[in-house]
Amino acid sequence: FEIPDDVPLPAGWEMAKTSSGQRYFLNHIDQTTTWQDPRKAMLSQM
Rank of each mutant, 00 (worst) to 15 (best):
F1S: 10
F1G: 09
E2F: 13
E2V: 09
I3C: 06
P4S: 15
P4Q: 08
P4H: 10
P4G: 15
P4N: 15
D5Y: 06
D5N: 12
D5W: 05
D5M: 08
D5L: 06
D5R: 07
D5G: 08
D5H: 09
D6W: 05
D6H: 04
D6Y: 09
D6Q: 12
V7S: 13
V7F: 08
L9A: 04
L9S: 04
L9K: 06
L9G: 02
P10G: 04
P10D: 02
A11Y: 13
A11L: 11
A11F: 12
G12N: 09
W13Y: 12
W13C: 05
W13K: 04
W13F: 05
E14R: 03
E14I: 06
E14H: 04
M15S: 12
M15W: 06
M15Y: 03
M15N: 05
A16R: 11
A16W: 03
A16P: 00
A16D: 07
K17W: 10
K17T: 12
K17L: 12
T18H: 08
T18D: 14
S19K: 15
S20T: 15
S20Y: 13
S20K: 15
G21H: 03
G21K: 06
G21T: 02
G21D: 09
Q22Y: 04
Q22H: 11
R23E: 09
Y24I: 05
Y24N: 06
Y24M: 07
F25V: 01
F25P: 02
F25L: 01
F25Q: 02
L26H: 02
L26R: 08
L26C: 05
L26A: 05
N27K: 01
N27S: 06
H28G: 05
H28T: 10
H28W: 04
I29S: 11
I29N: 15
I29P: 06
I29W: 09
I29Q: 07
D30Q: 09
Q31R: 14
Q31M: 11
T32W: 11
T32M: 14
T33W: 03
T33Q: 03
T34C: 06
T34F: 00
T34L: 00
W35K: 05
W35Y: 09
Q36S: 10
Q36N: 08
D37W: 00
D37I: 03
P38A: 01
R39Q: 02
R39K: 03
R39C: 01
R39E: 01
K40E: 05
K40C: 07
A41D: 15
M42W: 11
M42R: 12
M42F: 14
L43W: 10
S44T: 15
Q45I: 10
Q45T: 07
Q45R: 10
M46E: 13
M46S: 15
M46C: 01
